[in-house]
Structures are given as C-alpha cells and as structure tokens.
Amino acid sequence: MALEMDSWAVEGAQSSSRIARLQLQSGTASRNGVVDSSHLQILPLTVPGTSVRATSGGATILGAEASFQGSYFAFNVGDAEIAVSPTGSGGGRSDLVILRVEDPNISGTPWTHDVTTDPVYYFRVIEGVDPTTTDVPPGTTGVALARLDIPANTATITSGMITDVRQMANPKRLRELRVQRGQGLEDGRDDHADFTSDFERWPQHDWTVTIPEWATQVQVRADWLNVMYPAPIDGTGGNYDARGQVRVGLVGSGGNVINTAATAFNFNATSASNGYRCSIGLAAQMNVPTAMRGMACDLRMYAKSDADRIRYLVADGWANFAVDLEFREQAAPQAEL
C-alpha cells in the first residue's frame, strides 16, 4: 500500500469521495454516533400508531463494510416516520431502529441504489433482534437509535416500548472541582454534624456551579476528610458512636433540586480520653433534568446524625472538604446508571 494519490484541497490535484470520507473519519477519531444528545431520538407518534418518529439531528457513521471506507455524515431535518410491523398472537418481538448507510459504491455490498437520484441514508427496522440488543449487527455501516420491545398482538407503538440506545459520536465533558477547609475551634465557629433528624449543610458553606446546557448526567465524588471525632470523656459504649449519613445536592431556582443518594458513616470511640480524625467518601451518578440544564445552582454538602447517639463529628480547622463533579453529555444517560 502507498499514500493516497488523492489530495484534498490542493489546486489541480485529484480528489475523491473516499478521501473526503477518510478525512471525516480522521477528524472524528473513528467515532460512531449522534452529534448532540437531542439528535435522532426515536419517539412515538404524537397520536401513537403503527409507526415511530425520528427527530431532527445528525450522526457520524463509521464505514464497517470495507477497509479504509471512511466515515459518513447524515442529517435528518424535521421528524421522519418509520413504519413498524405489528406482532401477532404468537408472541412479542424486539426490533432495532437504526440509521444505515447503503452505499452501492462499496464493493461487496448488496445495495443497488442509483446515487444520482436516490439517497444512501435510510432509517431501517431490523426485526426479531435479541431483547438485550443495543448496537447494529457486525459489519453494518450504521448507528443504533432505539430498541422496540413490542408485546404480542400489538400494532400501536407507545413510549413504554421504546428503549433509547443512542451513543454520542463526541460527547462533551466538563469537570468542576470545589474544595474548602473547615472552620477553627478558637472562636467557637466549629461546625458539628450532630443530632438532626433531617439533612443539614455540613460544612456550612455553599459553592456556586453552573450546569452546562448540554449536560444530561453528572458524576459526583465527595470527600469529608480529616474531620474530628472528639474524645467522648464519659465512656466508650455504643451510645458514643458517631453515626449518620452524608449526601451532596445541587440546588437551583424555582424548586429545582437534585440530590445524590446518601451514604452512611459509623465511627466508634476507641478511648474515653482521646479523639481522632476520620474521613467519609461518597460516589454517585445523577441524571440532570431538562429544566436544570444551563442553571446556576448552589452546590452543598449535607449530613445528618442519628439522634439517639451522644457523639458527633466536627468540621474544625484541620478538616478538608471536596466535591468533584463531572458533567457529561449522554444521549441515553439512563442506560449508564
């Protein structure tokens, strides 16, 4: 093999469709998927019927039928209806809705379209796939959009039958890291996580974070580091345990709030006369509601302590706190939970 004779954008030199496809493949790092998280969603008809609809949007589609085939770019303008065959009384069926490239100029393919008059991009329904299918069959130049899990004796496709399986060609990422120290003991400002039946801010400080407009998911790592368990003085029994839960929340305007699931802590007295330092970690993943995308939010760390204990944790001047957020653009964020 040798370097291609085709020379893109060189005056007087040869050029071809393949060099354009290879350039697109190089520019997209051989990725395959939809362009934006809202692109090419498969939804029921406005009045559910025997078809589904694909919304507007584009996709980068890596050639899979020949070596050095390159990549294609397709864009759907407006909603497109895609017919779905009904199921019979003998049982249900799973179908895969895909956007496929049918390029007859690729040797060995079965396509016979006249590219001077016909498109090479088509929405297709592959019937009878495995009910766990999430990708196009091997050797298919296409992107998977949705799986339809259709009950027996059904002609009308509703939203509950549609599983979104789209992947992003180039998903966006944004990391936001926030850190702080605790407050000092010398002037009484130390911050206790003590005896609350509901969550309180701990430590008592908020950051401001703006959720990107494209973010559909956020991954969270939070650390309450080197916090103080004070010496119990009176004893070391179970009543002196510091027990409770922590979580992280993003609090926006208009009542828009998302909180992580809570994680528990349980620290025990090792000596009646000595306190010690301890740490708590949390990891979580949350979907970002549409209403909160682009919204400026307060980022808060919370704790609540079991009310039947007589010991607690302290965010003193030696304690450290951090929340690490990664906002992610996922076409089907629920599929990664």
Rank of each mutant, 00 (worst) to 15 (best):
T158Y: 08
K172R: 13
F195E: 00
L177V: 14
R181D: 15
R181T: 15
E176C: 08
T196G: 14
R178C: 07
V179A: 12
A169K: 05
R166M: 10
M161D: 01
R166Y: 14
T196S: 15
I157A: 04
I157F: 03
S197G: 15
R189T: 15
Q180P: 00
S197A: 15
R178L: 06
M161R: 04
T156G: 02
R175T: 13
T156E: 08
T196E: 12
Q180E: 14
H192T: 11
L177R: 07
G188C: 06
D194W: 09
L185M: 09
T163F: 05
A169D: 04
G188N: 09
S159P: 03
D198H: 04
R181A: 15
E186P: 00
P171F: 02
G160Y: 00
E186W: 09
D187V: 14
I162P: 02
G182V: 10
V179C: 08
I157P: 02
G188D: 08
H192G: 10
G160W: 01
A169E: 05
T158G: 03
E186N: 08
D194I: 11
G184Q: 07
P171W: 04
I162Q: 02
R173S: 15
I157E: 00
N170Q: 12
A193T: 03
M168Y: 01
R181Q: 13
H192E: 11
L174R: 07
R175G: 10
D190Y: 07
D194G: 05
N170L: 13
D164F: 01
H192K: 07
I162K: 00
T156W: 01
D187F: 14
A193R: 02
D191K: 09
Q167P: 02
G188H: 06
F195V: 04
Q180N: 09
L185V: 10
D187P: 00
D164I: 04
T158A: 08
R175Y: 05
L177K: 07
E186K: 00
T158N: 09
A193W: 00
G184N: 10
M168I: 06
T163Q: 11
R166L: 11
D198A: 13
Q167F: 06
R175A: 15
S197Y: 08
E176D: 15
R178Q: 15
F199C: 04
M168E: 04
R173D: 13
P171I: 05
G160K: 03
Q180H: 08
D194Q: 12
R175L: 09
D164S: 04
Q183L: 11
D198N: 10
S197M: 08
T156F: 01
L177G: 04
V165C: 09
L185R: 07
G160C: 03
S197W: 03
Q180C: 13
K172G: 01
Q167V: 15
T163W: 00
K172Y: 06
D194A: 14
P171C: 09
